[in-house]
């Protein structure tokens, strides 16, 4: 779940961004749309406890983020947030398996090879564990990145521009994969995008237990 109220963020030498309130129940989908520069990335950073809000309240996965200090925020983020970046940032120096093991390292956990194997299998890329990212197709790489995002069973999955530079068919597959994965993990899914096609790819009342809330952000300066 994600609940915000009066959320604002003041850039040190930039604009003050004010965000509309949201209340997204656990397991729901939030589509965060708007043009470039409207504050989507800042909103994601706030939800992931990477930056602290200038004003307002923010509760994510039952955790009030205003009370979290930096090290506690890092530990909470490792447990609660799964992140799929626009550029996948799979390390070219590491194999697919090692890229997932790196997520466990970042979270301060020891390597759990069976969990990595099971997650890759669930996303249909179990046989690619030994390959380097350079040997993967675009779709395979996105599945591996999604496996990395959900490996630690996060309560919230943040997907940043998951359909950027994809054709219609690939975009539909990417969104479908996100929805399926979020549903399997019972996670709240946030898709931040300026791609107008994405709204049409999310069923308004998908599978009964996933609610879809579009949130339109526009640049606002107080």
């Amino acid at each position: 779940m994600i609940r915000t109220q009066g959320l604002c963020y003041q850039y040190p030498s930039g604009p003050l961004l004010a965000f509309p309130d949201v209340d997204v129940p656990q397991g729901a989908v939030l589509l965060l749309s708007g043009p470039s520069g409207c504050g989507k990335s800042t909103w994601l950073a706030l939800v992931a406890a990477l930056v602290a809000p200038s004003a307002g309240t923010l509760v994510v996965a039952e955790q009030s983020l205003g009370a979290l200090k930096s090290i506690a925020a890092d530990a909470w983020r490792a447990r609660a947030i799964g992140f799929l970046p626009q550029k996948l940032h799979l390390s070219a120096a590491l194999s697919v398996h090692q890229n997932l093991a790196m997520a466990q390292w970042a979270a301060g956990q020891s390597e759990d090879a069976p969990a990595i194997h099971a997650t890759l299998q669930a996303l249909g890329v179990g046989d690619l564990a030994a390959r380097k990212p350079g040997q993967l197709s675009g779709g395979q790489a996105q599945r591996v990145a999604l496996a990395r995002a959900v490996l630690l069973q996060p309560r919230v999955i943040l997907a940043d521009e998951p359909t950027a530079s994809l054709d219609d068919e690939s975009a539909a597959q990417a969104v479908g994969l996100l929805l399926d994965t979020a549903r399997q993990h019972g996670a709240t899914l946030v898709i931040a995008t300026h791609d107008a096609r994405v709204a049409g790819l999310i069923p308004p009342e998908a599978n009964g237990n996933i609610g879809f809330q579009p949130l339109q952000l526009v640049r606002s300066k107080l």
């Binding site: 992931a48 990477l50 930096s70 090290i71 890092d74 530990a75 983020r77 490792a78 447990r79 947030i81 992140f83 970046p85 550029k87 940032h89 390390s91 790196m102 997520a103 390292w105 970042a106 979270a107 301060g108 990395r148």
Partner: peptide
């Protein structure tokens, strides 16, 4: 070169010191 990779590590929960 690895700025993005390092930032991702932070996103995955690694503290700055790590």
């Amino acid at each position: 070169e690895r700025r993005g990779d390092l930032a991702l590590l932070r996103m995955l929960g690694a503290p700055p010191a790590k």
